[in-house]
Simulated scan of single mutants.
Amino acid sequence: MRFKTDLRNIRTFSKLVAALNSLEKIAWVRLDDDTVRFTVIPDTGSQVWASLSVDLIFDNYHLQSAEPNNTINLELPLGPLQRALRSAAGSNHASLRLTKRDGVPMLSMTIHAMTKDPGGANAATAAAAAAAARAGYPPDADDDLFPQESLELSMRREREKIITQDIPVRVLHPDTVETIMQPKVREPDVHIQLPPLLQLKAISDRFTKLALTTTTGSAARPNAPGPRLELSANMHGSLRLRLVAESLDIESVWDGLDNPELDPSQLAVPLEEHPSTAFRAAGPERWATVRVDGKDWSRVLSVGRLEGRVIACFADDHALILYVYVPHHDDAAAEDVVTYYVSSYSA
C-alpha cells in the first residue's frame, strides 16, 4: 500500500479542511485513482460528503493498493492536518505520503520553505562600517563623491528550511467503509442558489446571538442546543431567514435569487411531476421550510471560505441539502462538489 503526492492547491485544501474541522474532529478519507472523498458524520449536527477530483488539490499523485482502483481508506484527524496545512501556507513546495513511525501509520507532510539568512545586507553594512572605523575613516567620508548603493539584493542569503509534520491515521478495511451510507432524501421541493455564504453567516450569527441574549434558564447554558432558525425558500427566487424566540420575531429576506433549471435526464420522475414544478405553479407564497440549530448552521456556513456557488435543495419540513461547487483556479469550467446534509427539526 503506497500513497505519495505533492500538494497542488494548499489554500483551497486548507479552507476545506478548516470547514470540515468546524463540524467534527475526525474524517473518513477515501483515495482512489480518480477522486478524493471526505466524509464527516458527527454524533449530532450536519453531515458532509465531499467528492473531489485528484487534480484539485494534488499533483504527481501516486497511489497503489490491492483494492480495486487502488483504493485506500483512512480515518484522519482534521485538527493536525489543518495545522500542518497552515504551516505549509506560503511554502514553495509541500508533499504528503503514507508511511509508518514505530509501526503506527502516519500521513507525513514535508514542507519546503525559504527563510532569510539573519546575516544579510544589514549585517554586511554594519561590518563594513566597523571596518572603516578601525581603519581611521569617518563613517560618512566621501559620501558625496562616492554615493553608496544598497547591497540588499546581492548580500541577502536565502536558505531552504524543511519541516516534516506527522499526522497519525488509521487504515480502514473496505468492508467497514462500505457501511457508511450517504443519507437518502426525497426529491426536493425547492432548489435555489444561495447568496454569498459569509453574508448569510453574518446575519445568521446575529440572529443566534440575539436569541441567546434574550434566553433565560437552562437553554442559556454553554452546552445546551442553540436557538432554532427557520430557513425558507420558494421557486420564485426568494430566501427567508427567520427567528422566533421568547420576545423576538425577526426575519431577513433575499429576493432575485436564481432557481436553476433541472436536468430532466438526472431526475427520478418526469419534470412535470417533480415537486418543484408544483411549488413553482403555487406562486411566491408557497415556501419550503426547514428548522436548523443556529450554532450548527453557523459551522455549516463556514464553508463559504471556499468561495464557490452554493445550491440549496429544500425537502419541506424534512432536510436541507447544500451543494457547494468548488472551482478549479486553473480551469474555470471545472468544479468539484462538497455536499452538506442538514436535518430539519420538527415545528
Results as ranks from 00 to 15, higher is better:
residue 151 L to H: 07
residue 298 S to F: 00
residue 220 A to K: 14
residue 60 N to L: 07
residue 173 H to E: 15
residue 85 L to K: 10
residue 333 A to K: 10
residue 147 P to A: 08
residue 122 N to F: 10
residue 133 A to F: 04
residue 336 D to M: 03
residue 337 V to P: 02
residue 289 T to D: 08
residue 83 R to L: 08
residue 130 A to G: 01
residue 127 A to N: 01
residue 332 A to K: 07
residue 322 L to Y: 08
residue 253 V to W: 04
residue 130 A to M: 06
residue 317 D to W: 06
residue 283 G to E: 01
residue 237 G to I: 05
residue 198 L to G: 02
residue 313 C to G: 05
residue 134 R to V: 11
residue 196 P to V: 12
residue 188 P to A: 12
residue 147 P to K: 06
residue 296 D to I: 07
residue 250 I to G: 05
residue 161 K to Q: 07
residue 235 M to T: 06
residue 58 F to T: 06
residue 251 E to K: 15
residue 338 V to W: 05
residue 121 A to S: 15
residue 163 I to L: 15
residue 62 H to N: 11
residue 137 Y to V: 05
residue 328 H to D: 11
residue 52 L to R: 05
residue 259 N to K: 06
residue 342 V to Q: 02
residue 250 I to C: 09
residue 208 T to Q: 05
residue 49 W to P: 02
residue 3 F to N: 04
residue 194 L to D: 08
residue 180 I to L: 15
residue 128 A to N: 10
residue 335 E to M: 12
residue 59 D to R: 12
residue 235 M to W: 02
residue 13 F to G: 02
residue 39 T to V: 15
residue 102 D to R: 14
residue 255 D to F: 05
residue 290 V to L: 02
residue 229 L to M: 12
residue 103 G to L: 07
residue 339 T to F: 00
residue 189 D to P: 04
residue 27 A to V: 06
residue 317 D to H: 14
residue 51 S to E: 12
residue 135 A to D: 11
residue 240 R to G: 05
residue 312 A to Y: 09
residue 8 R to F: 14
residue 245 A to C: 06
residue 15 K to P: 04
residue 101 R to S: 01
residue 234 N to A: 03
residue 216 T to G: 03
residue 324 V to H: 14
residue 270 P to N: 10
residue 310 V to T: 15
residue 305 R to E: 13
residue 5 T to Y: 00
residue 61 Y to H: 01
residue 300 V to A: 03
residue 192 I to E: 01
residue 138 P to A: 07
residue 135 A to M: 14
residue 30 R to T: 14
